[in-house]
Computed example of a mutant assay.
Amino acid sequence: MKYRKKPVEIEAFVWTGNFEQKEDPVWIVQAIDSGTVVIPHYEDSAAKYGFLAMEIKTLEGVMIAKQGDYVIQGVQGEIYPCKPDIFEATYEKV
């Protein structure tokens, strides 16, 4: 059987890794404040991952966003990263 994704609207932004990023949506700021999303200090991040990372706590465990990845808030408020090529193949701007 084949399946097609239902059309749903999500919110997302490209994470630049710049602490002065101006287009951070309210929901990511709230997730950082609550500890659901953690941005380790650059030295800690570089030592652990080799790049600046955003750690996102999900039901499946901690997922990592790199600079340039999309960060998505899903239909139930869940937050997760998505690689740009997958995002662009899956979503279109509304």
Rank of each mutant, 00 (worst) to 15 (best):
11 E>C: 13
12 A>M: 08
12 A>H: 02
12 A>F: 05
13 F>M: 04
13 F>W: 05
14 V>K: 06
14 V>A: 06
14 V>T: 05
14 V>E: 02
15 W>P: 08
15 W>M: 06
16 T>S: 14
16 T>L: 06
16 T>M: 08
17 G>W: 09
17 G>F: 10
18 N>T: 03
19 F>H: 00
20 E>I: 06
20 E>F: 12
20 E>K: 12
21 Q>E: 06
22 K>L: 11
22 K>W: 01
22 K>G: 09
22 K>C: 09
23 E>M: 05
23 E>V: 05
23 E>D: 11
24 D>R: 11
24 D>M: 14
24 D>Y: 04
24 D>G: 04
25 P>E: 03
25 P>D: 07
26 V>C: 09
26 V>M: 10
26 V>H: 10
27 W>V: 07
27 W>I: 00
29 V>M: 14
29 V>A: 15
30 Q>N: 07
30 Q>W: 04
31 A>W: 09
31 A>H: 06
32 I>Q: 14
32 I>C: 03
34 S>V: 05
34 S>E: 00
35 G>W: 03
35 G>K: 08
35 G>C: 07
36 T>R: 11
36 T>G: 12
37 V>Q: 11
37 V>I: 13
37 V>E: 09
38 V>S: 11
38 V>E: 11
39 I>T: 10
39 I>A: 15
39 I>Y: 10
39 I>D: 10
39 I>L: 12
40 P>F: 14
41 H>L: 10
41 H>V: 15
41 H>I: 08
41 H>A: 14
41 H>E: 15
41 H>Y: 11
43 E>L: 15
43 E>F: 07
44 D>P: 02
45 S>F: 07
45 S>C: 11
45 S>W: 02
45 S>I: 07
46 A>D: 07
46 A>R: 15
46 A>N: 13
47 A>I: 14
47 A>K: 08
47 A>H: 11
48 K>C: 13
49 Y>D: 02
49 Y>K: 01
49 Y>L: 01
49 Y>R: 03
49 Y>F: 07
50 G>C: 09
51 F>G: 01
51 F>P: 03
51 F>M: 05
52 L>F: 00
52 L>R: 12
52 L>E: 08
52 L>D: 02
53 A>F: 00
53 A>W: 00
54 M>S: 10
54 M>G: 08
54 M>K: 00
54 M>P: 02
55 E>A: 02
56 I>E: 02
56 I>S: 09
57 K>C: 07
57 K>N: 06
57 K>S: 09
57 K>M: 08
57 K>P: 04
58 T>Q: 01
58 T>W: 03
59 L>S: 12
59 L>C: 10
59 L>A: 14
60 E>K: 05
60 E>L: 03
60 E>W: 00
61 G>E: 05
61 G>P: 03
62 V>M: 01
62 V>P: 07
62 V>N: 09
63 M>Q: 12
63 M>T: 13
63 M>L: 14
64 I>Y: 09
65 A>K: 13
65 A>G: 09
65 A>Q: 00
66 K>N: 05
66 K>R: 12
66 K>H: 14
66 K>P: 13
66 K>G: 12
